[in-house]
Design a protein around this nucleic acid. Structure first.
Lengths: 155, 155
DNA sequence: ATAATAATAGTCAATATTAGTCAAAGATAA
DNA sequence: TTATCTTTGACTAATATTGACTATTATTAT
């Protein structure tokens, strides 16, 4: 019943390929044709669902033989992943990106399911309940970074 | 006999679906059309009849292919303990009192050590980093209450 | 070589498609 | 009568879709 919108469907399609392969390399117009959308929608899908917070690296090339290549990266291979994440977060992060970050930490076994959910609840828009979005996003960043720094000591 | 206002009827309709399925996923405008009410009445029904206290989780998405999804969850046995704590906390709590709350949840085995630490970090004064103490205390209250509400059910 | 053209992908803003909030008005119950 | 609950709709917010325009790279023509 889910996945009513085409962006979700395209996301799943790409992720199903990535489940078996190290990376996926597409021709933007081909995927656009396949799902009957305009080419720029592929950019939208990538921009909203294959971010570094989600654990994906994207590279592309224009011109003849151009492509978009999506690679799933394991952030935890890197020793200073926490530093990297902290840098990515900076002093502000949206709920969407926070979800991606926490999801990545869960997938990399830095957090278990319960812990991940606790963090998501603590940083949820409705939980924080502040009107000012800038404040909301900066609070969310502070909380997540605080927790990341804490995790550094524990491990 | 009870009044059969339209909100009650919509409530029963949704719950009849939930009797057979784990969750129900609707398009707000469709249900509104089905019962000839304005869309926002669906929000009213959800807000008054599908609360977490009653064991329902609600999530939604806007935009194309948007939806509202209601899930029935299993409440923990001593959920009323959480209610008491939530009442005690109210809309503001100091760091010291928060520590006591988390500590007691740890002693009651509602939280393990790691989870307790996560919550304390998330609600630490330095983490939140707001100058206004009233704001700090109210944020702390919101975060802890959000987490307590989350602890009501198993996911 | 260089210039022109073709073949890609990227950006951005307008529009479309949902759901959420809130307060006023109306209905019902105490 | 008064308090609470329900209904309504105007306004807001979030997300998705589209297309015009731009940028980059490769290929072809001169």
């Amino acid at each position: 019943m889910q996945s009513q919108n085409i962006s979700d469907i395209i996301e799943k399609y790409l992720k199903s390929i990535l489940a078996d392969a190290e990376h996926v390399e597409i021709r933007r117009s081909e995927i656009a044709d396949l799902f009957n959308v305009v080419p720029s929608q592929i950019n939208y899908v990538i921009k909203t669902r294959f971010t570094i917070q989600n654990g994906y690296l994207v590279e592309s090339k224009r011109g003849g033989g151009g492509y978009i290549r999506i690679e799933k990266v394991n952030l935890m291979d890197d020793a200073d992943v926490l530093d990297t994440l902290i840098q990515v977060i900076g002093d502000s992060i949206t709920q969407r990106d926070a979800y991606a970050v926490v999801q990545s930490l869960y997938e990399d076994n830095v957090l278990n399911r319960r812990e991940a959910q606790l963090i998501l609840v603590a940083t949820d828009r409705n939980t924080l309940g502040v009107d000012d979005h800038d404040l909301e996003n900066s609070l969310r960043a502070r909380i997540i970074i605080g927790i990341l720094n804490h995790l550094r000591y524990e491990s």
